[in-house]
């Protein structure tokens, strides 16, 4: 097993007096694909949001490369752990404008390299001629690819994906998953994806973490997991 990139120890999350996650102990291995599955309300998205500090656990600790999350400056952490949301959020302007947002957010803006943008765009499944296109005119599938590409500009080690296919049609969903798989294989990116669609989970493959009512009920490699069809 690869060394853990992110470790969760005894994580508990309580929101408005309701326990969303309880006693979560989990390791996400470096360079591996992980899929959080489970019925709606199981706590998948809540768990994902803890992984780049969009939310904080009520109890427990999270480690990144063995270092406590709280000892890493939050803005650095979010650049190392990118996130793609369920609904693609596109900023005003062209595809290029969207891709250069992460550069502009830095205190010392790093120079924008056109060939780097094109490489990232192509890795995310969009052609280089998309750069000058108006981002709002892309299809939903293309917009989601753009948000993946935009997250990659920060050169993260980990990419979190919260049901990235849910707003997409079936064909676009499958294409996106193929790109995500490629990103993992080519860049060695650690992938953590939330989905409730088993088809997509089996297609992406990797380690399946099955959550029900805020607890992990099963954790297995996808080949073993899908051998037993009674589990879900």
């Amino acid at each position: 097993m690869n060394k853990p990139k992110i470790e969760l120890h005894k994580i508990e999350k309580i929101k408005n007096g309701i326990t969303i996650l309880k006693d979560i102990n989990l390791k996400f291995s470096s360079g591996k694909r992980h899929i959080l599955i489970g019925p709606s309300g199981a706590g998948k998205t809540t768990l994902l949001r803890l992984l780049n500090r969009m939310d904080e656990p009520t109890f427990g600790e999270i480690l990144y490369d063995g270092k406590n999350f709280k000892d890493i400056p939050v803005l650095d952490l979010r650049r190392r752990i990118g996130m793609v949301f369920q609904i693609p959020i596109i900023f005003d302007g062209s595809v290029k404008d969207n891709l250069t947002v992460p550069y502009r957010l830095r205190v010392i803006p790093s120079p924008i390299k056109q060939d780097e943008l094109i490489k990232i765009l192509e890795l995310s499944g969009l052609q280089s001629d998309f750069l000058e296109r108006k981002a709002s005119e892309l299809s939903v599938g293309e917009k989601q690819r753009l948000t993946v590409a935009r997250a990659l500009i920060n050169k993260p080690d980990v990419l979190l994906l919260d049901e990235p296919t849910s707003a997409l049609d079936h064909a676009a969903g499958i294409k996106l998953l193929e790109s995500i798989k490629e990103l993992n294989e080519v860049l060695g990116l650690t992938i953590i994806m939330v989905t409730h669609q088993l088809e997509y989970a089996s297609l992406l493959g990797g380690r399946i973490i099955h959550l029900v009512n805020g607890t992990i009920v099963r954790e297995q490699e996808s080949e073993d997991f899908f051998l037993n069809s009674e589990i879900i």
């Binding site: 969009m54 949301f85 900023f91």
Partner: peptide
């Protein structure tokens, strides 16, 4: 809200 969270996830400060 969603746009703000998208910025935060990219490493933006609250002000940005």
């Amino acid at each position: 809200k969603m746009e703000i969270e998208a910025y935060l996830a990219l490493g933006a400060t609250a002000r940005q």
